[in-house]
Simulated assay, not measured.
Amino acid sequence: MNILDDLKLQYKLGGIAMRVIYWNIACFLISLVFFYQYSIGQFNFPSWLALSSEPGVFLYKPWTFLTYAFFHDGFFHLLFNMMVLNFSSTLFMTYFTEKQYLGLYILSAIFSGVVFVLSYYFLNFSSSIVGASAAIMAILVATTTYQPLMSVRLLLIGVVKLWHITAVILILDLMQISLGNTGGHISHLAGAFFGFVFVKLLQNGTDLSVIVSRTIDFFVNLFRKSPSTPFKTVHKNYKKPTEKPVSRIVTKDKAQQQIDEILDKISQSGYDCLTKEEKEFLFKAGK
Rank of each mutant, 00 (worst) to 15 (best):
G103T: 03
L118R: 01
Y95S: 12
F196N: 11
I139C: 06
I157G: 04
F281C: 11
K225T: 09
A26S: 10
L201P: 00
H188K: 12
N2P: 11
Y121S: 15
S52Y: 15
G180K: 01
T206Q: 03
V212W: 13
A167K: 10
T242M: 11
K276D: 10
L85E: 04
F231D: 03
G56M: 08
E98A: 14
T242P: 01
S267N: 13
E280Y: 07
S151P: 10
A190D: 01
K61N: 15
I30M: 12
L274D: 09
S108T: 02
D5Q: 15
G15D: 04
H164F: 10
K12L: 13
L49P: 08
E261S: 14
V234G: 00
F75K: 10
P245F: 10
A50K: 12
I129N: 02
Y101V: 09
I16F: 01
G184T: 09
I266H: 07
S267T: 09
R19T: 02
M82V: 12
S228C: 07
T143C: 09
L91F: 12
Y101C: 11
Q10I: 12
S53D: 09
V159N: 14
S133F: 08
L154M: 13
V199C: 06
C27I: 06
I169S: 03
T233Y: 04
V130L: 08
L202D: 01
